[in-house]
Structures are given as C-alpha cells and as structure tokens.
Write a protein that binds this DNA or RNA. Sequence first.
DNA 1: CGCTAGGTTGAATACGCTCAAAGATCGTGG
DNA 2: CCACGATCTTTGAGCGTATTCAACCTAGCG
Lengths: 265, 265
Amino acid sequence: MALYRQGTYSPLIMHLQCAIDLSNAEIAALESFEASAETVPAGRQLDREGEQHNGAYIVQAGWAMRHKDLSDGRRQILDFVLPGDVLGIEGSVLRRADHSVTALTELQVSRFTFDGLESLLRQQPRLVAALVWQSACQRAVFAEHLVSLGRRSACERVAHLLLEVWRRLKMRGLAPDHAFRMPVTQVILADALGLSVVHMNRSLRQLARDGLVEKNRDCVTIIDLPGLVGIAAFDAGYLNETPMPDETQAALDRFCVTGLIPMRA
Amino acid sequence: MALYRQGTYSPLIMHLQCAIDLSNAEIAALESFEASAETVPAGRQLDREGEQHNGAYIVQAGWAMRHKDLSDGRRQILDFVLPGDVLGIEGSVLRRADHSVTALTELQVSRFTFDGLESLLRQQPRLVAALVWQSACQRAVFAEHLVSLGRRSACERVAHLLLEVWRRLKMRGLAPDHAFRMPVTQVILADALGLSVVHMNRSLRQLARDGLVEKNRDCVTIIDLPGLVGIAAFDAGYLNETPMPDETQAALDRFCVTGLIPMRA
DNA sequence: CGCTAGGTTGAATACGCTCAAAGATCGTGG
DNA sequence: CCACGATCTTTGAGCGTATTCAACCTAGCG
C-alpha cells in the first residue's frame, strides 16, 4: 500500500517532525498506528455539525474541508484538511461536532479508536505533546483566517491562502517546488475566503495578470514568490515550521503523560 | 479577597461545570489553585504575537482581547477573554505566541506555573479533560467567528456577537438577566467584527431603532431576545452550554491522565 | 455530440468604507 | 464647581470594493 512516497515518512510524521525530533521508537509506533487505511469517496461527509463525531482518522491522502453551513445556504469553509491532519479527536470531549467535515477528493484515511490511541500514547507519551502541538497549530491557522476575513482585501486573501497551503504542504513533504496540486474549485475558494465566486475569479485573474500566481484546474504555480509574499504580507510564523530550539523542546517534554486510564464505570 | 460574588463558585469552576460534574475534591483543588490573584492594569499587553508566552493565568475578573495586528495598522480581534478563561497554556507547546492578548479593563488574574498545574492535574486527573474541553470550546468560538466575518452582514454580526457574549457570561454566572456589562468601545467592536467604526455605529443604532438591543457605554440590554436571535440566526450549540449526558461524561473520562512526569533532562 | 460542471466576463447595484464634522461623556485640574 | 481636553459616539455625503444577475465560454465525460 503506497499511501505516500516510498522511502520517506508519512505526512503526519513529517508534520510532527516540524515540532519535535521524533525518536526511532516513536516513528515506528506511529507507522504501525497508521499502517492500515481505507478509502473515502469524494463528497462524503465525515462529520456533520451538531451531530456526534463519526470516529477519528488520520488523513493520509486527499483533501477535505472543515465548514459550517447556514440554514439559508450560505457556507463558510473554515480550513482545508490536508494529508497528515488528524480528525475527530475532539470527539473525546465534545458530544457534538462544532463544524462539518467533507471530503473534497477521494481520501485515504487511517481510522483509529480512542482505545488504540490510548495505548499508543501510553507507549510513547511524548506523542501527547506532539498532538497537542498539532491542535495548537490548527487554532493558529483559524486565527490567521480570521485576520484574512476581517481585515484583508480580496487579492490579499487569495494570495495569503495560496501561500499558506503551499507552506503547509511543504511541511508534510508534499510540495517540492513552487508548484503544487490544489484540487479545489473557485466556488470552494470563494466560500473559504468569504467572497462571491465572481469576485474570487476576478481576484485570481488579477494575480495572474500581475505575474504573481496562476491556478489552472488543480495546479497552483507560484510565479513571483517575493511579490506574492509582499501583497499578502505573509509571515509563516503561525505555521510553526521550524523545529523548536532545544530549550523549548525541553519545555515541551514537561507535559508528557505517563499513561491514560479508562475510567468508564 | 472577593474576586467574585461570595457563596458562589469562581468563573472557571462555573464554566467547567457546564461540561463536567466536578466533585467536591476537584472544586476544592481548583479553588486553592486559583486562591491568589494579582491586578493587571487596563491596556497592559499580556502576550505579544511572535514573542514567548508571558506565563499562564486564570482570569478572575475583567475583560481582555486576543488580537493580531498588521504592520499597516489594521487590527483583527479574534475573541474576547472573559473571567473564567485560562490564558497561556499553549506556551507549553508553542515557542511563540500566535496572537497577542491585551487587557481591556483592569484585570484580576491568578498566575500559575506549569509545575503547579502539573501537580494539580496529578491530584485531579479529570481536570485534564476539563481543560481540553475548554480549549475545544475556544476553537469552536473561533470557528463561529469565521462564519460571522465571512458570511454574515454587519447587523447579523453585531447581533450574533452580543448574544454570544451574553451566553458566555451566563455560563460563568456573570449575566443573571437580559442585561450585562460589556466594557468595550465601538472601535473595539469594529475590530472584532471586521467593520469600520462608522459602520459599527450605524449597525448598533439600527438594532436599537428596531427595538432589539441597546448598548450604552458599558451596558448591553437585550430588549427583544427572540428578535435578536432571529436576525443573528443564533444557535448556542457551539458554546457547549448544557452538561454532557451521562454516556458522554463516561467517554470524557477516557482520557484521564494518571500523572504527568517532568522529563527535563 | 450534447450534457454538465466549472470558469470568465460585463453591467448594474448595494453594502460598507473614507472623509469630515459635530455632539456626548468623562476625567482632570484650575 | 466649572472649564478643558481627550476619548468616544453620532451623523452626513461621496466613493469604492465586492455582490448580484446574466450570459457565454470551456473542458471533460457519457
């Protein structure tokens, strides 16, 4: 099963490596944890806002979106789910999903149970910190999206989103150069950026006309990186791309969990 | 020291009670954990985006804001920090704050160390789940704000925010009826809702003219609750106000931590 | 070949912004 | 106690970004 390129790590491991120097034992434990995978068809709704979480997954391949829908048809996409993202862990503390998750493409996912996670974390307690780190990153992305929707112009938003996706893919080893696959229509982009489709299109054409980026069908090509970074005022700090310095790694180890005990009566 | 009304619980305990039936031992442990408090003057910046977290606090009284500032002066407020909120826990996994936090009024805060938190959680492991729950609630609030900024009109945004704040205060025992204190200028509101001050004012006046809500200086009064809920299409589900049903409480206990071990080399 | 989903463009409209100025309210000091 | 300055609120007028509506184009697919 070739979920990702041979001879390299899974997207999840790649991502966590950005925060922590994973030991060989930790890598091996993660690899066996995400060994099996199942296919989810494009368009399938993995979670529905207001309903119980539909299990927990690691996304291995494909794109999904987190979104909320208003009763009158308006929709806001909160974020794109990329390979290496973990879904549904909140299910352990929230009885209802606060947003929906829908597959944008066919997905490969490794489903896991809380019991399975429990024993993984009991074996490798530092991974607790790694997962907490990933969830903190998630929140930082939401925060940056709030800035885009609240205070950036249409072109700034588009530029910022494309750069964000590019960097996030890069962290997972999925964007070797200045071009990457982004299997997302302009309708979807518009709903992610709080714009109308028409204006989304015009902004995209504008950026292309200015020689900054191009997006044809599924493929985004960054033509003028400094220019794009400039108009988006993009600062990748919030993505936490660089490994923590040693002192902070030590601090991270503080909250290592020795074990998790099931307390069901 | 009367940080909150005598004979009742602290805002944090009130809030956590929304999720979990805290035992007497857990309540006592929390009360001693937040026994001491210090004063922070209005306007003081508690955290600065991009810099290291400035310790961890429980807010006992007063308002603060989470925000991000662009280099050209634009500002987006992500969320208001209310009594009962815990700040700075992310400092354990992130080396830099992804957003700033600034006091809007004078604050009473209980500062704590990670060592102190560690021993609290070792004594009362179910509180781990409670804190994870609070942080999940935080993310749900961000998500709802994304919907507001991306897809709601100015009046809808204002109505939605006022209702949200009202419910959040209510959960902490700080809004007995349909009126509450909101020590926030229109400039601040505008930056929270992605609007200009002028338009913020017009929207507020509009809502008052329609007999829905009024805001004079510090005090918000909800005049027509159903009407306000209607135009905001407000659904409080995302705030997780209602205690989990028994079955879910059991699930919540799954991730109880038996202990935390400091692993600093 | 025709259907469908997605992309592109124009024209008119509207929501929210900027600029500008005047009115409240509050704290402070004379 | 009143005057003053600072901050906040309110209102008007004109403008601009983004929306809506509508039509046409393009590519992929049965």
